[in-house]
Design a protein around this nucleic acid. Sequence first.
DNA 1: GAACATTTGTACGTATGTATA
DNA 2: CTATACATACGTACAAATGTT
Lengths: 239, 239
Amino acid sequence: MTDARLPRYYLIRDELHKRILNGEWKPGELIDAESALADRYGVALGTMRKAIAQLVSEGFLERRHGVGTFVRRANFESSLFRFFRFTSASGERVVPESQILDLRVVPANEECARHLELSTGDELIAIKRLRLLEHKPVQFEEIYLPKTLFEPLLETPAESLPALLYPWYEECCDQVVASAHEELSVEKVSVEHAHLLGIETGDPVILIERLAHDIAGRPIEWRRSRGAAERFRYHIDIR
Amino acid sequence: MTDARLPRYYLIRDELHKRILNGEWKPGELIDAESALADRYGVALGTMRKAIAQLVSEGFLERRHGVGTFVRRANFESSLFRFFRFTSASGERVVPESQILDLRVVPANEECARHLELSTGDELIAIKRLRLLEHKPVQFEEIYLPKTLFEPLLETPAESLPALLYPWYEECCDQVVASAHEELSVEKVSVEHAHLLGIETGDPVILIERLAHDIAGRPIEWRRSRGAAERFRYHIDIR
DNA sequence: GAACATTTGTACGTATGTATA
DNA sequence: CTATACATACGTACAAATGTT
């Protein structure tokens, strides 16, 4: 299928990639030693190293000298959210508190269905919450999850949902967020959102729309967040 | 200096890196063949290949199969500016026209001096310009250049400055922009900027501050651009 | 078009070093 | 101290891409 007289190290990269996607090796887990894999696939050590190096550079694997090679977990440090000034008065970075406003099962509208690759009307879990810093609202979030994947979540009372959802998705629903795509734009705040965020009507807000995927690339969460643009600063290096 | 029983391939990376920074190999130029370099530095081919691979992954070099290895030129395709909807009515991407409003020599204020690593009061070339799409202003830019590096620019009449400045910096002043750092934030438009951009007072604008560096990492241009936030959309992938 | 030299790309096999449990 | 696993380094051979003759 993917053949076409491709280099061996690339074919092996695909084999290993499949084993990760199939869940044979789960995020955080140790994979076989490179020497063992080289034997197993009948190639030289250097060739196997090159296949592994590929997957490392693509972010699927992580090597630890003297220990082994591991399936990587997602790193949301580079998320745009990092660039909201989520800092306490003393200047430390801080996870904002979370206040659930609503949690219910709803039928997917056209937009959610498109993003989550479902049909309009399929059941979603819809969460609305405020994130607060020192008891002041800084962000309003709407989160949509396919009900079929997150059923166990409904047995949890809304008050006991943690501020960081992703580790909890994993623990409770066996769903691992491995990557995400975010889009950022600016809009004038609506009356409703101005009220929630405690800002003046017409002030600019940053809108971040995020689609989160599992390790196989299937969409598992669609999220829309709004925060006062004043609190936002983003930086990037170009070369 | 940088030694400490570091791997050979890393020491060689540093040697090659120095030769690039010294300008012995200039951006766009072909460097020696890897076999020649391996001989020259007295290491095996594989070791030299690894040193070169390092510099490739760091963005300093570029390999072309069957041709050779080249010093890389900067790629501004990934710039935040790309995400302004600089498109014509027919939907094609387009370089906006440029209209110079002002060009003069000024003493550096504290902010410009800090960014360009000069002293307050050192002479700068200051350019103000509008960028237009279909004759409508979309962005207002203030550009600051150290006079000592860009002296030849003063002999050019402002009207004949091209829309894309970076290739022209190179041709006219032998200054190559190799990397840049950008910061993005949102502000309410000032009366002056609202007038220039043709938007309502108080509308949000995206402010992009850019510091451009040459290949040795020396700052050579400081730029501040403002555009209507409405026209802006930015996306990012997280893994 | 064909033959050729040059240059990078792939692959093998081996030996030794270094970090970790 | 020992076993394991990744890291570095060497040297060789041939394949594939490109530009020139």
